[in-house]
Simulated assay, not measured.
Amino acid sequence: MKSKTIFGLLAFLLVIFISLLFIPDDKPLKIISSPKIYSILRSSELEAFKIEFLVNKNDTYHFNKEYISSVSLNSELDEEIISLTINDISFGNGTYTYANEEYYLVEFKLKIGFNTDDYLIDFNKTYLSIEYNNSEELKLFIGEFNYVFNDDINNEISVSNLSSTVFEIDGINTVSGIYIELNNISNENLIINRFSLGSNTIEFNNYFLSEIYVEPDLFTEVKEILLVDEYNYKSSSNIIEQTILLRENQSITLYVPLNYIGDIDYIHRFYFEIEYENNLGKNSLIIDDFPYISTSNFQENLEDEYIIYEIPN
């Protein structure tokens, strides 16, 4: 009799356990965006860029491209819409914990949906719009987006050294300035005027664009490099031009610090343009974007800037 009771209890518990397995997960989908500055030079028709989010579900159709009908980048009020194509959607290894909940990193690998050889996309406030086959739509704020198409080949200046210095704002390491060695490979003297960074809210301080003779260490402070008492990262001097001579068949090493004049106080990857004069007039060299600092966009010091979307079932 006792064994029958135990068997019956085990059978009852087994039925409950199996039933629980088939109860649908009714928790809402949560998507976390960490806004950043995207500053990208398109150097190849095959080039893609990535946009990452944290999500609390990795088994939903929202991240299966077979269920997605279209993807685009939209300006703040949808005045401009840039169509995109999806190369891939993938989940990273491991998980992140935020507010005592487990999240997965999902990466959208995307391409601009058209080709051109001279075009600039510059959205101060940008949304990734995802439309699904069931007519559902998500609009996720991703930050500032700058993307330039440029296939020009420069035969006057080459770069033989490029590095950055970094500093910390509110616990986040970001670029404080760049050091670059330029080589004049033309048969005439050139005049370096200014550096322009691929962003609307972070800029080079061309007032301090200057020739230096020793490459600075990664964490050398800007004021030590420039030999000034203090350096104000929040000032603006974007309209200033210099006249730095780069002689024929000679090289020069330059340093220029950054100014942060917008809401996002960090940048890890960007393209920039060097504007100069030759005998015929104005010309420029665009330097491809590469990671000056390799770091995650999802870290504790950025949590105050997270935007959390909750999508009901």
Rank of each mutant, 00 (worst) to 15 (best):
I307W: 04
E137S: 15
S163P: 02
I82T: 14
Y271D: 01
N87G: 10
S284E: 13
N134R: 12
L120Q: 08
N154M: 12
N115A: 05
N205M: 02
I40N: 03
N173Q: 10
N279A: 12
S196H: 07
D122R: 02
N155V: 08
K111L: 08
E47L: 08
E168N: 13
E47H: 06
I239V: 01
G262A: 09
I185H: 15
T253W: 02
N249A: 10
Y276V: 03
K223G: 06
F12D: 07
E76L: 13
E203A: 10
Y207S: 07
V71C: 09
I32V: 11
E277N: 11
K109F: 01
N200T: 14
D288N: 11
N279D: 12
S90W: 09
L245N: 08
E305C: 05
L14T: 13
S210K: 10
E107M: 04
I311E: 03
N238M: 00
T174Q: 08
D88N: 15
I261G: 02
I180R: 13
G113L: 03
N150I: 11
D88T: 08
S296R: 06
V256H: 03
N313S: 12
I130C: 04
K27R: 13
K111R: 12
L140A: 14
I6S: 12
K109H: 01
L29P: 03
T295M: 08
S90M: 13
E221G: 09
N283K: 09
E275I: 12
I180D: 08
D229M: 07
E275F: 07
S34E: 01
Y231T: 02
